[in-house]
């Protein structure tokens, strides 16, 4: 677990781990995260060699394929100083909670993984811990609801910060989502392996979303974003699904560069 001591020095420089999915499928999310972090006065480094933390293979049971990819992740990120920020609670959970199981036969790697994990923060967790959820003074005319992405909520244990960040955006109407903490049915390979079950879970989520009347749904993980957006599009719904980094970046853009 990362250090939970009270806020001390605000980092001036962080390293962004985009996650493979953001990097290739939703670069706008990563771009937005950079903008928000810079808005907070943080310089963002992006190691160009990064790919993936290994979670997709690990969660599918293919640990021998995940192992070298995760080892590569550690080698890359143990050489950078300061906090590492990732706009995904799921990737953060992989590194912080599951590298232990992946490296359990290699005490050396286990310790190196632990040290990287200590410096790795999910995006909203990082903002909350070092700057506070009122540090971004943006405004946006939109009506949204928030889906509590599972791994951020239950694996990392972050519940309040994303909602606080949203409620601090001026002009934003935030409608509570019924059963916000129930999974959207994504689950990585599960969504493809057992599509009928995944979709049944999604349908319940989408019904609850539509019921809020909000124009957009915010989530904190790209997997949830694609699952919900893919389902809403198929329904012919105009409700947009956005990552929390995107909506925060939008709120800054519409406010202008002055702070």
């Amino acid at each position: 677990m990362p250090d939970t001591s009270p806020l001390t020095a605000r980092p001036l420089r962080v390293t962004l781990f985009a996650s493979c999915m953001v990097d290739q499928l939703a670069p706008g999310v990563g771009f937005s995260a950079v903008e928000v972090l810079e808005h907070l006065g943080v310089q963002v480094d992006f190691p160009g060699d990064q790919t993936c933390c290994g979670q997709p293979a690990f969660n599918s049971g293919f640990r021998s394929q995940a192992l070298p990819v995760a080892t590569r992740f550690i080698e890359l990120f143990e050489n950078v100083d300061g906090p590492i920020v990732v706009p995904s609670g799921s990737c953060a959970a992989m590194v912080r909670n599951y590298y232990g199981d992946l490296f359990d036969r290699d005490p050396g790697l286990l310790e190196r993984a632990r040290r990287v994990g200590e410096r790795l923060y999910e995006f909203t967790e990082f903002i909350d811990k070092f700057f506070g959820t009122d540090a971004i003074r943006g405004s946006l005319d939109d009506s949204v609801t928030y889906h509590k992405s599972c791994h951020l909520l239950r694996e990392i244990g972050i519940d309040g910060p994303p909602l606080e960040l949203l409620s601090n955006v001026e002009g934003l109407t935030l409608t509570p989502l019924n059963r916000a903490d129930v999974c959207c049915g994504f689950g990585g390979a599960f969504s493809v392996k057992m599509p009928d079950i995944s979709s049944a879970i999604l349908n319940e989520k989408l019904d609850n979303i539509v019921q809020t009347g909000a124009k957009s749904v915010v989530a904190a993980d790209t997997g949830c974003v694609f699952q919900m957006q893919g389902g809403l599009r198929r329904r012919g719904s105009s409700v947009r699904v956005v990552h929390i980094a995107e909506i925060l970046a939008d709120s800054i853009r519409s406010t202008g560069p002055d702070r």
Binding site: A18, V22, D23, Q24, L25, A26, P27, G28, G30, F31, V34, F46, G48, Q50, S191, V192, K193, M194, P195, D196, S199, L202, F226, Q227, Q229, G230, G231, R233, R234
Partner: peptide, 30 residues
């Protein structure tokens, strides 16, 4: 968005649209 994807993600598009891979990676955007 893709309405009907080939394997191994064909299961996804039975009920959901699938996002097309971005023309540029985050690395190249940055």
């Amino acid at each position: 968005w893709i309405k009907k994807a080939p394997p191994p993600i064909s299961g996804w598009t039975v009920t959901r649209d699938f996002p097309l891979i971005s023309p540029k990676s985050l690395k190249s955007l940055l």
